[in-house]
Write a protein that binds this DNA or RNA. Structure first.
Length: 130
RNA sequence: CCAGACGGCUGGGCGAUCGCGCCUCCUUCGGGAGGGGAGGAAAGUCCGGGCUCCACCACGACAUGGCGGCGGGUAACGCCCGCCGGGGGUGACCCCAGGGACAGUGCCACAGAAAGCAAACCGCCUCCGGGUUCGCCCGGCGGUAAGGGUGAAAGGGUGCGGUAAGAGCGCACCGCGGACCUGGCAACAGGGACGGCACGGCAAACCCCGCCAGGAGCAAGACCGAAUAGGGACCUCGCGCCCGCGCAAGCGGGCAGGGCUGUCGUAGGCCUGGGAGGUCCGGGUAGGUCGCGAGAACCGUCCCGCGAGGGGCGGUCCAGAGGAAUGAUCGUCGCACCGGUCUCGACCGGUGGCACAGAACCCGGCUUACAGGCCGUCUGGUUUC
């Protein structure tokens, strides 16, 4: 059933990111995820990645984006909702966090942001790994 | 073997499974196959160029900024090489903004009498006058710069002679200036008649001299080009009344009408005297394409040169993104660290250990960052033969 798999696209322009920034977010471990219901009829899932200069230089930022991109490639097809935009923001531990823990962070954050869960209250930030 | 100096290289290896962007080919348009995909600094953006557009389109002058031993290399440089001079080191070697102070102006703190025309604070000495306890003391006209003291620096230094005391006053050596000679393309080096010491330092103070520089930058710039709004031309429909010109189309003027004059009424002034639809044209925004990688290229080799480098021949094609690919995970080996065993050199186990760091138009440099490892040349010391 190929029609059940929604296409995943990349977000590229600044207005898209700004729109997502006003949406509910959830911080888990080394990442923060913002989810926005675009409220249009297109079933596509869109993803964007952000790593600010606060976490390091170009090497660290690129590494964080690559790991988030790989994690999104593995996790999103099962947990993302069609018609939504997701923005993954790297926190300090994103380049060095163990890979399986990083996958757990993404899964957990996506489940918290699922539209079924009432109360979009932000979960308290889990303490970073020791 | 130890310590050190200099130059160069490297920047984890192999494999498996997924994946990314680019190019070529195939395709049943779902995709598939193949190729190639970060650095020595890609960094800082500090110099020099290429390439674009703008300006002047010739050159010069001025201003501003930079550079500054000499010769060479180079497209060019503030870079590099060789040499010279000065300084440091036992040495290999390292360091130096290293033009001009008789073109001019200015400054030299503190201390000191005096800091640039030379002078004289404490002193020293002849002579004159006075005093005297006969050691000398006081005052004056002069001579002098040896000694003292200050300073970063006090108008050559040491010694001998000389003198009333002194003084390049004379002499020797050293230092300084130096016509000229020799060597060198030159910076400069060696010698040096003679001069008898006259000429202090600061140009990273202004300045002078010589040389070099127009400005902005790939978000440069070129091409294609929607939608919407606005501009122009043409066509169709519409266009109250009066006057003038005209056969007509139409043009001009006036009035009505509309707008503005904060609002309403009245009066006045100014502007306009109109609209709708369609087709086409040009400018131009979003967006797209180019610029965008075969070159001051890389590899090998030969020749020239001490070297930087230059030349010949042969071969190779080697990243081109645009919220930005070049990755993720695992295994194994290597290295490091920790723990244990022990036949002291290995073995076993563990590690959330393995440098600095990511192309963005492209080259040549400089500077800065960098775990570990490798190679070469040389110096000093030590041991053995």
């Amino acid at each position: 059933m190929p029609d059940a798999i929604s296409p995943i696209e990349r977000m590229k322009t600044r207005p898209e990111f700004l729109a997502a920034a006003r949406s509910p977010s959830c911080a888990r471990g080394a990442i923060v995820i913002q989810a926005r219901n675009r409220a249009d009829d297109l079933p596509v899932i869109r993803v964007g990645f952000t790593a600010t200069r606060k976490i390091g230089g170009a090497v660290v930022r690129n590494r964080a984006k690559r790991r988030m991109r790989e994690a999104a490639r593995q996790i999103l097809p099962g947990l993302a909702k069609p018609g939504y935009d997701y923005v993954l923001i790297a926190r300090g531990g994103a380049p060095t966090r163990p890979w399986l823990r990083l996958l757990d962070d993404v899964k957990s954050a996506l489940l918290s942001l699922a539209p079924d869960s009432d109360l979009p209250s932000r979960a308290p930030d889990r303490a970073p790994a020791p």
